[in-house]
Design a protein around this nucleic acid. Structure first.
Lengths: 233, 233
DNA sequence: TGTGACAAATAAGTCTGACTTTTTGATCCA
DNA sequence: TGGATCAAAAAGTCAGACTTATTTGTCACA
C-alpha cells in the first residue's frame, strides 16, 4: 500500500528498507552495489537509484572504493514517514511506537492550544463532528468507526494549529492510532474518560480557551503514554 | 558545507533543492528529466538519481508520460534536515524559523522533564558545564562562545531525554540558535534572565526535579517565541 | 452527437557496457 | 621505521538503445 509500483527501485526499497531499519545489518556493515543488483536482479542503474534514496534518509553512506555502509541508528532520519512505516512494520515496532507516543505527548497539547487560537469556524465544526462520531462509536465494539473519527479528530487539531510541522504529523499519529487498534491489545471498547476528554477539547477549541484545550489534550496524551506503560499509572 | 562532494547528483541537488523549496516552481509545475540533465550538463542517469532523492523528500513526483511534477508544500517532508537547511538558506527562512521555534516550544520542555528522569551523571555534569559556559560568555559581546555553549546545552537536554526522536532534533535546534546569532538581530548580549533559566534547568535536572525542569524550559522557549513575535509580550 | 476502440506520440523507466575517479592498502625503497 | 609509489577495488559517470506506461487524438460506429 505504501510504495507500490514506484518502479523497480521502489520494489528494491520495499525489501531493503525494512531490512536495514530492522537492524539486520549492524552499523558499519558494507553492502556492494553490484552484489545488491545481482541479488534483486536489477540493473546497476536501478540499484544506484535505490541506494541514493537510502542515502538521503541517512540510512546508509556510499563511499568510493569501500561500498555502501550502513549507518548507526542515531544518524537515521527518523522523521521520514517512509522510515517510520518501515520500522512500524518490523521488529523495531515497539520502540518506534513508544518514541512516537512520547512525541505526540509533547506536540499535541501545544497544537491544541494553538488550534484554539487559530481554528476556522469550519475546523471547529469538523472537530465537534469528529468528537460526536467518537461518542457514537464508543460502545458495542465499533472499533473501526471509532478509530476513523479518532484519527480525523487529531488530524483536525494538528492542521488547525496553523503550524506546518505539526500538520505533517497527522499521518504519523494516524498510524499510531491505527496500530493501537489493529495490532495491539484493543479488544474492548475505548475508555469512556478518553471519549469525554475529546468532546471537551472540541468544546474548548470552539470557545477559544487555549489553556483548557492544551490541558485537556495533555490528559489525553498521558492516557496514551499509560497504555504503553511509559508513565506510572 | 552541508552537502559537498557527494558526486554530481549532489551538485545538482545543491541548486535544484533550494529552488524548489524556495517555491520558485509553483505546485504542479512540470520538469522534464532530459531538460534538467541538459541544464545542469550531466547525464540522464545522474539526473535521475537527483530526481529520486527529491522524490523521497516528497518535493516532486515522477510520473510516466507527464514528467517530474512539483508537489504542494503541504506534502513536503518538512522534517528532512536537508529540506530544513534548504529552506533556512532561502526565501522561506522566516517561516521555517517560526515553525521550528514553535516545534521547539512543544518538544524541549517535555524533553527537559524526561532528561531530569533519565540523564546520566555524566550528562548532568555536561549540562552544568554548558550552563556555566553560557554564564561566562554572557557579557562583553562574546556571542560565539555563548552560542557554542547554548547549542551544547540544548543538545544534551535532547539527548538525555532518552527519546531518539527528540535527540534527532539537536541539529535543527543548533541551526535555529545559530541563525538567531548570525543572521538576525542579536547585537547585544543575551538576556540575563534567559541565562539564569538555563542554570536553573541544569540544577533541576541534577536534582531530578522533572516538573521544575519542564516548567523552566517552557519559560526559555516562551522567550524564544517572543523574540519572533509569535507570542504577545 | 456521443462513445468506445484503436493508434500514435511522449516521457519516464530500464539495461548494458565502456570508461573515469577516488580511495585504500600493499609493496618497495630509503 | 617511515614515507612514497603503484595497483586494485568499488563507486561514479556517460552514451545509446530499447521498453513500457500513459495520455491524447482520431476515427468508425451506434
Amino acid at each position: 500500500m505504501s510504495t507500490m509500483g514506484r518502479g523497480l527501485h521502489g520494489r528494491v526499497l520495499d525489501t531493503l528498507g525494512p531490512e536495514i531499519t530492522a537492524g539486520e545489518y549492524p552499523p558499519g556493515s558494507v553492502l556492494r552495489t553490484d552484489e545488491l543488483a545481482q541479488r534483486f536482479d536489477v540493473s546497476r542503474s536501478v540499484m544506484r537509484e535505490a541506494v541514493r534514496v537510502l542515502e538521503s534518509m541517512h540510512l546508509v553512506e556510499s563511499r568510493r572504493r569501500v561500498g555502501v555502509t550502513v549507518r548507526a541508528k542515531a544518524e537515521w532520519n527518523v522523521y521520514d514517514p517512509q522510515v517510520i512505516r518501515w520500522r512500524l512494520a518490523g521488529a523495531d515496532r515497539p520502540q518506534q511506537l513508544r518514541s512516537l507516543t512520547v512525541l505526540r505527548s509533547a506536540v499535541e497539547p501545544v497544537a491544541a492550544g494553538l488550534a484554539a487560537k487559530n481554528a476556522t469556524a469550519e475546523q471547529c465544526a469538523e472537530l465537534t463532528e469528529c468528537a460526536l462520531g467518537m461518542v457514537a462509536n464508543s460502545r458495542g465494539h465499533q472499533l473501526e468507526g471509532y478509530l476513523f473519527h479518532d484519527v480525523a479528530f487529531h488530524r483536525v487539531i494538528l492542521n488547525a494549529s496553523g503550524n506546518e510541522m505539526f500538520a505533517r504529523l497527522g499521518d504519523v499519529v494516524a498510524e499510531v492510532l491505527a496500530g493501537r487498534t489493529h495490532h495491539d491489545v484493543m479488544f474492548e471498547d475505548p475508555d469512556p474518560a478518553a471519549v469525554t476528554l475529546h468532546v471537551q477539547v472540541a468544546e474548548a477549541v470552539r470557545e477559544r480557551d487555549a489553556e483548557r484545550a492544551e490541558r485537556l489534550t495533555r490528559e489525553i496524551t498521558i492516557g496514551a503514554l499509560q497504555e504503553l506503560d511509559i508513565l506510572a499509572p
